[in-house]
């Protein structure tokens, strides 16, 4: 069950004589906005994928036995911790 899809759009196929507006993918990694960090308790995680569903930035990645957050793009909003039906995700303060 591979869930993260690969980009369907090959940038090299864009003709180079077009108006060059918005032809690059957004490279921003908003992980440094974060003040709270989601930590998954692997014992409690049952892989129901609710966090994966509701994450607005789709930073949740699937591991073999649990779900984890991709910290490069996670903005730390805490929706996953709020919605997790098993309370397996806890928001802890980011240490500098």
């Amino acid at each position: 069950m591979k869930k993260q899809s690969i980009p369907i759009f090959d940038q090299s196929t864009i003709p180079n004589n077009l108006c060059p507006i918005a032809t690059e993918y957004s490279k921003m990694m908003p992980g440094d906005w974060r003040s709270m960090l989601p930590v998954v308790n692997r014992k409690k995680c049952v892989k129901c994928s609710i966090c994966w569903l509701y994450c607005p930035v789709q930073c949740i990645i699937e591991r073999a036995g649990w779900f984890d957050a991709n910290l490069a793009t996670c903005k730390g909003c805490g929706i996953c911790a709020e919605e997790c039906p098993h309370g397996a995700i806890e928001m802890v303060a980011e240490e500098d």
Binding site: P7, S49, L53, V57
Partner: peptide, 28 residues
Amino acid sequence: VQANMQRTNSLNSGHRACQGCGEALGAR
């Protein structure tokens, strides 16, 4: 099922929406 597993990530991560933006989720 709650949602389709075959998602296409039409709105890719790396956008500048606020933390917890409902619009980013709904649009995707």
